[in-house]
């Protein structure tokens, strides 16, 4: 059975239909890259899977948790699937440790000591154990993004959604974030990432989804998608002729 089931999903912003019937099933442990031009709907799809956008038609389920517009269902869904953002979105008034602890204590009602132990463990996992007491504005972009990953991991999700998580980073900081993601992938975490890092997608992902004008235009193993693009749109996107 698939872990994430996206079935005939449609999403409109006003009269503009951004997703025009998306079907993707993702198995546990899969690492999937979504590529495509801006405006092709890839970020919107990711945001729908986390319930940050509501869908107009179709269904989304993650490990049995359905996307439904009430707070209870949304919470159940979001406990299964975490999300990392392009702009990190760390809580600026809390330290790195506080960022990782907050949702554990507030959402899962984890006692403070246990939440702190988890926070230290997760920060260690992303290589930032020594930054436990640092505030976000004292960290580099790459470090902030790694704290954001630790924060999502501390909720022990079964899948992670990564929305262009290296796009706001200086080139020299991209590698440290990708290294963390690579490690997660090798540990068997299910990952669904919108990315412009084609090399990374080729190396790490089990499947690549090419989206074009609100549809899944091509889907397949990276070696096929990158080496033998079938449609002219993907060829153009990849710059091969």
């Amino acid at each position: 059975m698939s872990l994430i089931e996206v079935t005939e999903v449609r999403k409109r912003f006003g009269s503009n239909e951004v997703l025009k019937g998306i079907n993707i099933d993702i198995d546990p442990g899969e690492v999937i890259a979504i590529i495509g031009k801006s405006g092709s709907g890839k970020s919107t799809l990711l945001r729908c899977i986390n319930g940050l956008e509501m869908i107009d038609d179709g269904s989304i389920a993650v490990a049995g948790a359905q996307l439904l517009p009430d707070e209870l269902h949304l919470k159940a869904l979001r406990l299964k699937v975490g999300m990392i953002f392009q702009q990190f979105n760390l809580f600026p008034h809390l330290t790195a440790g506080g960022n990782v602890m907050l949702s554990q204590m507030v959402v899962k009602k984890t006692p403070k000591a246990a939440a702190e132990a988890m926070a230290r463990k997760m920060l260690e996992r992303v290589g930032l154990a020594h930054k436990y007491d640092a505030f976000p504005d004292e960290l580099s972009g790459g470090q902030q993004q790694r704290v954001a990953i630790a924060r999502a991991l501390a909720m022990q999700p079964i899948a992670l959604l990564c929305d262009e998580i290296t796009s706001a980073l200086d080139p020299e900081l991209v590698a440290e974030v990708l290294a963390v993601v690579r490690e997660l992938a090798s540990e068997g975490m299910t990952l669904l990432m919108v990315t412009h890092e084609m090399k990374f997608a080729r190396d790490v992902c089990s499947r690549v989804v090419f989206m074009h004008e609100g549809r899944v235009h091509e889907i397949g193993k990276p070696e096929d998608v990158f080496a033998n693009p079938k449609t002219p749109e993907l060829k153009q996107f990849l710059g091969v002729h």
Binding site: N50, G51, L52, E71, L74, K75, R78, L79, G82, M83, F85, Q87, N89, L90, F91, P92, H93, L102, S103, V106, V107, K108, A148, R151, A152, M155
Partner: peptide
């Protein structure tokens, strides 16, 4: 308070009141 703060806290499973209480109001 930036929209991203709402989204990040929502994605972590917080409800409206929790988002307000722990993320938005302090800022």
């Amino acid at each position: 308070v930036a929209k991203g703060q709402w989204e990040a806290s929502a994605s972590l499973g917080m409800g409206y009141v929790q988002q307000m209480r722990y993320v938005v109001i302090p800022q």
